[in-house]
C-alpha cells in the first residue's frame, strides 16, 4: 500500500525546549494511525507541523505527495483537519458555519447529509455557543469532512467527552475509515488508540519510543499483567516487592495496583497476602494494554 503521509526526522523547538526531536513515520492509505502520549509529549506540535500550520526547524514532510506549506492551497483542499485548540464564532448558527466553510473549498459534500449523519439536524439553527461539548466536536468533524478529503487529521477529538459520547465518536471514526479515508489522530487515551488504530506511535518527550500495531506492542510485553485489589488497613508495600516478576506497585487510597509478569504471579500475590493475614477484596487481574506498554517503556505512568 502506498504511503499517504511521510514524515522524516521532524524537529521543532520552542526556545530551548525540544518539543519534537527527530520523529519519523509513514501512514499508509486507508489506515487509522494514532500518535499517543502523555500531556506535553509533542503530539499537537507534530500533527500541526504535518498540517502545515506550524513552521518546523528540520525534517521533511509530505502528504499525498504535496508539501503542506509550499502547496498550501492544494493541500488544504484535499485534507480535513480538526484542531485541539480552536473555536468558531459564538453567535453563528450551525448551518451558517457549515455554509461558510463550504464556500472556501473547490468542492464540498451535501450539507444536509452531513448534518443527518452526525446527528445535528435538530441543532442546525442553534448558535455555536449553545451546543454541548459533544455536539461541538461533531460539528468540527463535519468541518473536517466537508471537502470530502482523502486524509483527515484529528487532534484529541474525544478529550472532554463523556464515555458514551466517546464510544459514539469511535463508531463514527470507524465509519469514516470504512469509507476509504486515511486518518491521522492523536490521543492520550490508550484505550482509544487500542480500539481505533491500525498502528500506533507512542511518543514521550518528543521522541517515538515505540511504533507497531496495538497487538504487537502489547505482545512484546512478555505477559505483563495488572493485578489490583482493595485493602481495609494500611500495609507495608515492601512485603510485595520481594516477589518475583514485580515491575511496579502503586497504592491509590485503599486500592493497590501491581504490574508484573510471570505465570504464577497472581498465585504468589494471593499466597503472600493470606500468609501475612492481610484482608483484601475485589481482586482483579487484567491483561496488559497500551497503558502498560507505556509504563514498561518509560518507567512512568501516562498520567502522573
Amino acid at each position: 500500500m502506498p504511503n499517504v503521509i511521510e514524515v522524516n526526522n521532524l524537529q521543532k523547538s520552542y526556545g530551548k525546549l525540544k518539543a519534537v526531536d527527530g520523529i519519523s513515520f509513514d501512514v499508509k492509505r486507508g489506515e487509522i494511525f494514532g500518535i499517543v502520549g502523555p500531556n506535553g509529549a509533542g503530539k499537537t506540535t507534530t500533527i500541526e507541523c504535518i498540517e502545515g500550520l506550524r513552521n518546523f526547524d528540520k525534517g521533511e514532510i509530505s502528504v499525498l505527495n504535496l508539501n503542506p506549506i509550499k502547496d498550501c492551497i492544494n493541500f488544504r483542499n484535499r485534507v480535513g483537519m480538526q484542531l485541539q485548540e480552536s473555536s468558531l464564532p459564538a453567535r453563528l448558527k450551525v448551518w451558517e458555519i457549515i455554509d461558510l466553510y463550504a464556500s472556501f473549498y473547490d468542492k464540498s459534500l451535501n450539507q444536509k447529509d452531513l448534518l443527518k449523519k452526525f446527528g445535528l439536524v435538530e441543532k442546525k439553527n442553534d448558535y455555536f455557543s449553545k451546543l454541548s461539548g459533544g455536539q461541538k466536536q461533531r460539528l468540527f468533524i463535519i468541518l473536517a469532512l466537508l471537502n470530502d478529503p482523502d486524509v483527515i487529521f484529528l487532534d484529541e477529538i474525544t478529550t472532554g467527552l463523556d464515555p458514551q459520547a466517546r464510544r459514539a465518536m469511535w463508531k463514527m471514526m470507524i465509519e469514516i475509515k470504512n469509507s476509504g479515508k486515511t486518518i491521522l489522530l492523536t490521543t492520550h487515551f490508550m484505550e482509544e488508540a487500542e480500539y481505533l488504530c491500525d498502528r500506533v506511535a507512542i511518543i514521550d518527550n518528543g521522541h517515538i519510543i515505540a511504533l507497531a500495531t496495538p497487538e504487537n506492542l502489547v505482545k512484546n510485553l512478555n505477559g505483563c499483567v495488572q493485578i489490583s485489589f482493595l485493602i481495609k488497613e494500611d500495609f507495608e508495600i515492601k512485603i510485595l516487592e520481594s516477589l518475583n516478576g514485580i515491575i511496579n506497585i502503586k497504592i491509590i487510597d485503599n486500592k493497590v495496583v501491581i504490574h508484573g509478569n510471570g505465570k504464577n504471579i497472581l498465585l504468589d500475590v494471593v499466597n503472600l497476602l493470606s500468609e501475612s493475614k492481610i484482608d483484601f477484596t475485589n481482586l482483579n487481574m487484567k491483561q496488559p494494554n497500551l497503558e502498560d506498554v507505556f509504563l514498561e517503556l518509560t518507567g512512568h505512568e501516562m498520567r502522573d
Binding site: 484542531l83 480552536s86 464564532p89 466553510y101
Partner: peptide, 15 residues
C-alpha cells in the same frame, strides 16, 4: 477571534 482560536480554525482551510 485570534485569542479564541477562531482564526486558527479558518487557517486550516484553503481560504
Amino acid at each position: 477571534d485570534r485569542e479564541k482560536g477562531i482564526l486558527h480554525r479558518l487557517r486550516a482551510t484553503p481560504l
